[in-house]
Computed example of a mutant assay.
Amino acid sequence: MKKIIFASILISAAATVSAGDVIDSDSAAINQGIREGTQVRMEGEIVQSLGDERYLLRDRKGQIEIELDDKLTADRPLKSGTQVSFTGEVEHDDGRSVVEVDKIRSIKGAVGTSSTSIISN
Rank of each mutant, 00 (worst) to 15 (best):
M1H: 14
K3L: 14
K3A: 11
I4T: 14
I5S: 11
I5V: 12
A7Y: 07
S8I: 07
S8D: 10
S8N: 13
I9Q: 07
S12A: 15
S12L: 12
A13D: 06
A14K: 13
A15S: 12
T16P: 04
G20C: 02
D21C: 11
V22S: 08
I23D: 00
I23E: 00
I23N: 01
D24N: 15
S25P: 06
S25E: 02
A28E: 11
I30V: 05
N31A: 08
Q32L: 12
I34S: 03
E36M: 09
E36R: 11
T38Y: 06
R41W: 07
R41K: 13
M42L: 03
G44T: 00
G44S: 05
E45M: 10
I46T: 01
I46G: 00
I46K: 04
V47Y: 00
Q48A: 11
D52T: 06
Y55K: 04
Y55Q: 03
Y55E: 02
Y55H: 01
L56N: 01
L56W: 01
L57D: 00
R58I: 06
R58C: 02
K61A: 10
K61H: 10
K61L: 05
K61C: 06
G62K: 02
I64G: 05
I64A: 01
E67A: 15
E67I: 07
D69V: 06
D69Q: 14
D70K: 07
K71D: 12
L72C: 06
L72V: 04
T73Q: 01
A74I: 09
D75W: 12
D75T: 08
D75A: 08
R76W: 10
L78A: 02
L78S: 00
T82W: 00
Q83E: 15
Q83R: 13
V84R: 02
V84N: 05
V84K: 05
V84G: 00
S85N: 13
S85A: 15
G88H: 04
E89F: 02
E89G: 02
E89I: 09
V90M: 08
V90Y: 04
E91I: 05
H92N: 15
D93K: 11
D93F: 15
D94C: 06
G95M: 05
G95A: 08
G95V: 08
R96T: 11
R96L: 08
V98E: 13
E100V: 13
E100Q: 12
D102P: 03
D102C: 04
S106M: 10
S106C: 15
A110W: 05
A110M: 04
T113Q: 12
T113A: 13
S114C: 09
S114A: 13
T116Y: 10
S117A: 14
I118K: 13
I118A: 14
I119G: 00
N121R: 11
